[in-house]
Protein backbone atom coordinates (compact mmCIF):
# COMPACT_ATOMS: atom_id res chain seq x y z
CA UNK A 1 0.00 0.00 0.00
CA UNK A 2 1.43 3.27 -1.01
CA UNK A 3 0.51 6.87 -0.49
CA UNK A 4 -1.35 8.66 2.23
CA UNK A 5 -4.32 6.97 3.85
CA UNK A 6 -7.56 8.81 2.97
CA UNK A 7 -10.23 6.57 4.37
CA UNK A 8 -10.14 3.83 6.90
CA UNK A 9 -13.25 1.89 7.74
CA UNK A 10 -13.18 -0.67 10.51
CA UNK A 11 -15.92 -2.99 11.72
CA UNK A 12 -18.61 -0.93 10.03
CA UNK A 13 -22.17 -2.04 10.71
CA UNK A 14 -25.32 -0.60 9.25
CA UNK A 15 -28.65 -2.30 9.83
CA UNK A 16 -31.90 -1.12 8.33
CA UNK A 17 -34.79 -1.28 10.77
CA UNK A 18 -38.10 -2.57 9.52
CA UNK A 19 -41.33 -3.21 11.35
CA UNK A 20 -43.71 -5.90 10.34
CA UNK A 21 -47.41 -5.42 10.99
CA UNK A 22 -49.08 -3.21 13.55
CA UNK A 23 -47.79 -4.99 16.65
CA UNK A 24 -44.92 -6.85 15.05
CA UNK A 25 -41.51 -6.36 16.49
CA UNK A 26 -38.49 -4.76 14.90
CA UNK A 27 -36.43 -6.59 12.34
CA UNK A 28 -33.00 -5.67 11.15
CA UNK A 29 -31.71 -6.00 7.64
CA UNK A 30 -28.03 -6.49 8.19
CA UNK A 31 -27.03 -4.70 5.01
CA UNK A 32 -23.47 -3.93 6.08
CA UNK A 33 -22.01 -6.19 8.70
CA UNK A 34 -18.52 -5.80 10.03
CA UNK A 35 -16.87 -4.31 6.98
CA UNK A 36 -13.26 -3.15 6.96
CA UNK A 37 -11.78 -1.25 4.09
CA UNK A 38 -9.10 1.29 3.34
CA UNK A 39 -8.58 3.79 0.59
CA UNK A 40 -5.51 5.86 -0.17
CA UNK A 41 -5.49 9.36 -1.50
CA UNK A 42 -5.89 9.23 -5.26
CA UNK A 43 -6.70 5.55 -5.28
CA UNK A 44 -9.64 3.88 -7.00
CA UNK A 45 -11.25 0.98 -5.24
CA UNK A 46 -14.00 -1.16 -6.74
CA UNK A 47 -16.62 -2.85 -4.62
CA UNK A 48 -18.30 -5.64 -6.53
CA UNK A 49 -21.37 -7.51 -5.40
CA UNK A 50 -24.71 -8.66 -6.63
CA UNK A 51 -27.99 -6.82 -6.05
CA UNK A 52 -28.92 -6.81 -2.41
CA UNK A 53 -25.42 -7.50 -1.18
CA UNK A 54 -25.40 -4.19 0.70
CA UNK A 55 -22.84 -2.42 -1.47
CA UNK A 56 -25.02 0.64 -2.00
CA UNK A 57 -25.71 0.82 1.73
CA UNK A 58 -21.99 0.58 2.35
CA UNK A 59 -21.37 3.52 0.03
CA UNK A 60 -24.10 5.63 1.57
CA UNK A 61 -22.92 4.79 5.09
CA UNK A 62 -19.42 5.92 4.24
CA UNK A 63 -20.95 9.14 2.89
CA UNK A 64 -22.82 9.39 6.20
CA UNK A 65 -26.18 9.40 4.48
CA UNK A 66 -26.86 6.71 7.04
CA UNK A 67 -25.62 6.78 10.58
CA UNK A 68 -23.54 3.65 11.23
CA UNK A 69 -24.68 1.32 13.97
CA UNK A 70 -21.17 0.34 14.92
CA UNK A 71 -17.61 0.60 13.71
CA UNK A 72 -15.45 3.52 12.77
CA UNK A 73 -14.97 5.69 9.70
CA UNK A 74 -11.72 7.62 9.75
CA UNK A 75 -11.54 10.16 6.95
CA UNK A 76 -8.38 12.13 6.39
CA UNK A 77 -7.34 11.49 9.98
CA UNK A 78 -10.69 12.57 11.45
CA UNK A 79 -13.26 10.29 12.96
CA UNK A 80 -16.45 11.04 11.01
CA UNK A 81 -18.51 8.13 12.31
CA UNK A 82 -20.94 10.17 14.38
CA UNK A 83 -20.23 13.80 13.51
CA UNK A 84 -23.15 16.18 13.18
CA UNK A 85 -24.18 19.54 11.77
CA UNK A 86 -21.22 21.79 11.01
CA UNK A 87 -18.65 19.03 10.94
CA UNK A 88 -20.91 16.82 8.87
CA UNK A 89 -21.45 19.66 6.42
CA UNK A 90 -17.70 20.07 6.12
CA UNK A 91 -17.38 16.33 5.50
CA UNK A 92 -20.05 16.57 2.79
CA UNK A 93 -17.98 19.20 1.06
CA UNK A 94 -15.05 16.82 0.95
CA UNK A 95 -17.08 13.96 -0.45
CA UNK A 96 -18.97 13.52 -3.70
CA UNK A 97 -21.69 11.13 -4.70
CA UNK A 98 -22.47 9.83 -8.17
CA UNK A 99 -25.75 8.00 -8.21
CA UNK A 100 -26.89 5.11 -10.25
CA UNK A 101 -29.85 6.74 -11.96
CA UNK A 102 -28.95 9.99 -13.70
CA UNK A 103 -32.60 10.49 -14.71
CA UNK A 104 -33.64 10.82 -11.08
CA UNK A 105 -30.47 12.32 -9.68
CA UNK A 106 -31.04 15.80 -11.11
CA UNK A 107 -33.91 17.97 -9.86
CA UNK A 108 -36.11 18.38 -12.96
CA UNK A 109 -37.11 21.96 -12.14
CA UNK A 110 -33.59 23.38 -12.00
CA UNK A 111 -31.39 24.35 -14.90
CA UNK A 112 -27.95 22.78 -15.22
CA UNK A 113 -26.43 25.98 -13.95
CA UNK A 114 -28.65 26.03 -10.87
CA UNK A 115 -27.93 22.35 -10.24
CA UNK A 116 -24.18 22.88 -10.31
CA UNK A 117 -24.35 26.07 -8.26
CA UNK A 118 -26.30 24.39 -5.46
CA UNK A 119 -23.33 22.71 -3.71
CA UNK A 120 -21.31 25.92 -4.06
CA UNK A 121 -24.11 28.01 -2.59
CA UNK A 122 -24.63 25.56 0.23
CA UNK A 123 -20.96 25.68 1.20
CA UNK A 124 -20.79 29.42 0.51
CA UNK A 125 -17.94 28.98 -1.92
CA UNK A 126 -16.90 32.06 -3.87
CA UNK A 127 -18.77 35.07 -5.17
CA UNK A 128 -21.40 34.89 -7.84
CA UNK A 129 -18.86 35.30 -10.63
CA UNK A 130 -16.45 32.80 -9.13
CA UNK A 131 -19.23 30.28 -8.79
CA UNK A 132 -20.20 30.71 -12.43
CA UNK A 133 -16.58 30.26 -13.39
CA UNK A 134 -16.44 27.05 -11.39
CA UNK A 135 -19.60 25.81 -13.09
CA UNK A 136 -18.02 26.47 -16.50
CA UNK A 137 -14.87 24.69 -15.45
CA UNK A 138 -16.73 21.66 -14.13
CA UNK A 139 -18.79 21.38 -17.31
CA UNK A 140 -15.63 21.58 -19.40
CA UNK A 141 -14.12 18.95 -17.18
CA UNK A 142 -16.91 16.51 -17.97
CA UNK A 143 -16.71 17.57 -21.62
CA UNK A 144 -20.14 19.10 -21.92
CA UNK A 145 -18.87 21.66 -24.39
CA UNK A 146 -19.57 24.23 -25.61
CA UNK A 147 -20.75 25.03 -22.12
CA UNK A 148 -23.15 27.75 -23.34
CA UNK A 149 -25.22 25.09 -25.06
CA UNK A 150 -25.83 23.22 -21.84
CA UNK A 151 -25.71 25.64 -18.97
CA UNK A 152 -29.26 26.92 -19.29
CA UNK A 153 -30.87 23.63 -20.26
CA UNK A 154 -33.03 21.53 -18.02
CA UNK A 155 -32.14 17.90 -17.25
CA UNK A 156 -34.93 16.46 -19.41
CA UNK A 157 -33.37 18.12 -22.45
CA UNK A 158 -30.19 16.06 -22.07
CA UNK A 159 -29.49 12.43 -22.91
CA UNK A 160 -28.74 9.89 -20.20
CA UNK A 161 -25.01 10.09 -20.77
CA UNK A 162 -25.05 13.88 -20.69
CA UNK A 163 -27.09 13.81 -17.50
CA UNK A 164 -24.61 11.45 -15.90
CA UNK A 165 -21.84 13.87 -16.88
CA UNK A 166 -23.74 16.62 -15.06
CA UNK A 167 -24.02 14.35 -12.02
CA UNK A 168 -20.29 13.77 -12.14
CA UNK A 169 -19.63 17.48 -12.55
CA UNK A 170 -21.82 18.15 -9.52
CA UNK A 171 -19.97 15.55 -7.46
CA UNK A 172 -16.57 17.14 -8.11
CA UNK A 173 -17.54 20.80 -8.06
CA UNK A 174 -16.66 21.28 -4.40
CA UNK A 175 -13.18 19.75 -5.00
CA UNK A 176 -13.80 16.68 -2.84
CA UNK A 177 -11.14 14.20 -1.79
CA UNK A 178 -13.43 11.21 -1.97
CA UNK A 179 -16.09 10.36 -4.54
CA UNK A 180 -18.36 7.40 -4.20
CA UNK A 181 -19.74 6.27 -7.54
CA UNK A 182 -22.67 3.95 -7.04
CA UNK A 183 -23.14 2.00 -10.27
CA UNK A 184 -22.54 5.14 -12.33
CA UNK A 185 -22.99 3.43 -15.68
CA UNK A 186 -25.48 0.65 -15.04
CA UNK A 187 -28.43 2.68 -16.29
CA UNK A 188 -26.65 3.94 -19.38
CA UNK A 189 -26.43 2.62 -22.90
CA UNK A 190 -23.56 0.27 -23.45
CA UNK A 191 -22.23 2.73 -26.02
CA UNK A 192 -21.64 5.51 -23.51
CA UNK A 193 -20.51 3.40 -20.55
CA UNK A 194 -16.88 3.25 -21.53
CA UNK A 195 -16.83 6.97 -22.28
CA UNK A 196 -18.19 7.80 -18.83
CA UNK A 197 -15.77 5.41 -17.13
CA UNK A 198 -12.82 6.85 -19.05
CA UNK A 199 -14.00 10.33 -18.09
CA UNK A 200 -14.12 9.35 -14.43
CA UNK A 201 -10.70 7.82 -14.69
CA UNK A 202 -9.19 10.95 -16.22
CA UNK A 203 -10.80 13.15 -13.55
CA UNK A 204 -9.60 10.80 -10.84
CA UNK A 205 -6.03 10.87 -12.16
CA UNK A 206 -6.04 14.63 -12.67
CA UNK A 207 -7.30 15.58 -9.23
CA UNK A 208 -5.86 12.59 -7.35
CA UNK A 209 -9.36 11.73 -6.21
CA UNK A 210 -10.09 8.80 -4.00
CA UNK A 211 -12.88 6.91 -5.72
CA UNK A 212 -14.95 4.04 -4.46
CA UNK A 213 -16.56 2.49 -7.49
CA UNK A 214 -19.54 0.36 -6.60
CA UNK A 215 -20.77 -2.04 -9.24
CA UNK A 216 -22.24 -5.44 -9.92
CA UNK A 217 -20.32 -5.65 -13.15
CA UNK A 218 -16.86 -7.08 -12.74
CA UNK A 219 -16.02 -6.32 -16.36
CA UNK A 220 -16.17 -2.56 -15.91
CA UNK A 221 -13.80 -2.45 -12.95
CA UNK A 222 -10.65 -2.78 -15.02
CA UNK A 223 -11.11 0.73 -16.43
CA UNK A 224 -9.77 2.57 -13.49
CA UNK A 225 -9.80 0.71 -10.22
CA UNK A 226 -6.47 -0.48 -8.94
CA UNK A 227 -7.99 -2.57 -6.18
CA UNK A 228 -11.13 -4.61 -5.91
CA UNK A 229 -13.27 -5.82 -3.01
CA UNK A 230 -15.89 -8.51 -3.43
CA UNK A 231 -18.99 -8.15 -1.30
CA UNK A 232 -21.46 -10.86 -0.52
CA UNK A 233 -24.51 -10.60 1.74
CA UNK A 234 -23.30 -7.60 3.72
CA UNK A 235 -19.71 -8.71 4.11
CA UNK A 236 -16.53 -8.31 2.14
CA UNK A 237 -15.23 -11.73 1.20
CA UNK A 238 -12.13 -11.07 -0.86
CA UNK A 239 -9.94 -8.12 -1.68
CA UNK A 240 -6.78 -7.26 -3.52
CA UNK A 241 -5.26 -5.65 -6.60
CA UNK A 242 -7.66 -5.88 -9.55
CA UNK A 243 -5.53 -8.11 -11.78
CA UNK A 244 -4.63 -10.40 -8.94
CA UNK A 245 -8.25 -10.96 -7.86
CA UNK A 246 -9.49 -11.46 -11.42
CA UNK A 247 -6.73 -13.84 -12.52
CA UNK A 248 -6.30 -15.63 -9.25
CA UNK A 249 -9.67 -15.68 -7.47
CA UNK A 250 -9.62 -17.62 -4.23
CA UNK A 251 -13.11 -17.31 -2.72
CA UNK A 252 -15.63 -19.64 -4.37
CA UNK A 253 -18.04 -16.72 -4.80
CA UNK A 254 -15.42 -14.68 -6.63
CA UNK A 255 -14.81 -17.61 -8.91
CA UNK A 256 -18.48 -17.86 -9.72
CA UNK A 257 -18.57 -14.14 -10.50
CA UNK A 258 -15.66 -14.43 -12.88
CA UNK A 259 -17.21 -17.49 -14.47
CA UNK A 260 -20.35 -15.52 -15.11
CA UNK A 261 -18.53 -12.87 -17.17
CA UNK A 262 -19.65 -12.82 -20.80
CA UNK A 263 -17.32 -14.80 -23.02
CA UNK A 264 -16.63 -13.31 -26.44
CA UNK A 265 -15.71 -16.69 -27.90
CA UNK A 266 -18.68 -17.84 -30.04
CA UNK A 267 -17.67 -21.49 -29.67
CA UNK A 268 -18.52 -21.35 -26.00
CA UNK A 269 -22.08 -20.19 -26.48
CA UNK A 270 -23.58 -23.60 -25.64
CA UNK A 271 -21.29 -24.27 -22.72
CA UNK A 272 -23.36 -24.26 -19.56
CA UNK A 273 -21.85 -21.93 -17.10
CA UNK A 274 -21.11 -22.98 -13.61
CA UNK A 275 -23.36 -20.88 -11.39
CA UNK A 276 -23.84 -21.24 -7.63
CA UNK A 277 -27.04 -23.03 -6.67
CA UNK A 278 -29.78 -21.26 -4.76
CA UNK A 279 -30.36 -17.61 -3.98
CA UNK A 280 -28.47 -15.02 -1.95
CA UNK A 281 -29.56 -15.29 1.69
CA UNK A 282 -32.06 -13.06 3.41
CA UNK A 283 -30.19 -10.37 5.28
CA UNK A 284 -32.81 -10.29 8.00
CA UNK A 285 -31.71 -13.70 9.18
CA UNK A 286 -28.39 -14.43 7.46
CA UNK A 287 -26.62 -17.80 7.74
CA UNK A 288 -24.33 -18.22 10.70
CA UNK A 289 -20.64 -18.57 10.11
CA UNK A 290 -19.66 -17.91 6.52
CA UNK A 291 -22.65 -16.39 4.74
CA UNK A 292 -21.87 -18.20 1.53
CA UNK A 293 -21.85 -21.72 2.98
CA UNK A 294 -25.40 -22.78 1.89
CA UNK A 295 -24.37 -22.29 -1.75
CA UNK A 296 -20.73 -23.23 -1.47
CA UNK A 297 -19.37 -26.35 -3.23
CA UNK A 298 -16.38 -26.43 -0.87
CA UNK A 299 -18.49 -26.25 2.29
CA UNK A 300 -16.82 -27.83 5.34
CA UNK A 301 -19.48 -29.09 7.69
CA UNK A 302 -19.04 -28.11 11.30
CA UNK A 303 -16.72 -25.24 10.48
CA UNK A 304 -18.13 -23.00 7.72
CA UNK A 305 -21.66 -23.00 9.20
CA UNK A 306 -20.47 -22.34 12.74
CA UNK A 307 -17.60 -19.91 12.72
CA UNK A 308 -17.13 -16.78 10.70
CA UNK A 309 -13.97 -16.92 8.63
CA UNK A 310 -11.24 -14.37 9.37
CA UNK A 311 -8.68 -12.74 7.11
CA UNK A 312 -6.33 -15.05 5.32
CA UNK A 313 -3.59 -13.40 3.32
CA UNK A 314 -2.77 -14.95 -0.06
CA UNK A 315 0.04 -12.49 -0.39
CA UNK A 316 0.82 -9.06 0.97
CA UNK A 317 -2.09 -7.32 -0.75
CA UNK A 318 -4.52 -10.09 -1.50
CA UNK A 319 -6.75 -11.40 1.25
CA UNK A 320 -9.72 -13.70 1.44
CA UNK A 321 -12.18 -14.81 4.10
CA UNK A 322 -12.63 -18.52 3.45
CA UNK A 323 -12.28 -21.55 5.72
CA UNK A 324 -11.57 -23.89 2.81
CA UNK A 325 -8.57 -21.83 1.71
CA UNK A 326 -7.42 -21.41 5.27
CA UNK A 327 -7.55 -25.16 5.88
CA UNK A 328 -6.03 -26.18 2.54
CA UNK A 329 -3.34 -23.60 1.86
Amino acid sequence: MSGERLLEVTGLKMYHVIRKGLFGGKFYIKAVDNVDLTLDRGEALAIIGESGSGKTTLGKTILRLYEPLDGKIIFDGRDVTHIRRGELKKYRRETGFVQQDPYGALPPFMSIRQILEEPLKIHKIGTKEERLEKVYKALEEVRLTPVEDFINKYPHMLSGGQQQRVVIARSIITDPKLVIADEPVSMLDASVRVEILRLMESIQKKYKLGIIYISHDLSTTKYFSSRINIMYAGKLVEGGPTREVIYNPIHPYTRYLINALPDPDANNRFVKRDVPPGEPPSLINPPTGCRFYPRCPLFIKGLCDVKEPGYTYVNENHWVKCWYYEENR
Binding site: K60, L63, L65, L88, K89, R92, R93, T95, G96, F97, Q99, Q100, D101, G104, A105, L106, P107, P108, F109, E118, P119, I122, H123, V167, R170, S171, T174
Partner: peptide
Protein backbone atom coordinates in the same frame (compact mmCIF):
# COMPACT_ATOMS: atom_id res chain seq x y z
CA UNK B 1 -32.41 10.25 -5.88
CA UNK B 2 -31.99 13.98 -6.36
CA UNK B 3 -33.13 14.59 -2.78
CA UNK B 4 -30.55 12.09 -1.56
CA UNK B 5 -27.99 13.80 -3.78
CA UNK B 6 -28.86 17.13 -2.18
CA UNK B 7 -28.26 15.57 1.23
CA UNK B 8 -24.94 14.20 0.01
CA UNK B 9 -23.66 17.62 -0.92
CA UNK B 10 -24.75 19.11 2.35
CA UNK B 11 -28.13 20.78 1.78
CA UNK B 12 -29.77 21.65 5.08
CA UNK B 13 -33.19 20.28 5.99
CA UNK B 14 -34.91 23.59 5.33
CA UNK B 15 -33.15 23.95 2.00
CA UNK B 16 -34.33 20.52 0.96
CA UNK B 17 -37.89 21.28 2.01
CA UNK B 18 -38.11 24.64 0.25
CA UNK B 19 -35.73 24.20 -2.65
CA UNK B 20 -36.11 20.52 -3.57
CA UNK B 21 -39.44 19.22 -2.31
CA UNK B 22 -41.87 22.13 -2.64
CA UNK B 23 -40.98 23.30 -6.19
Amino acid sequence: PYVEAALSYGASNMRIVFRYLIP
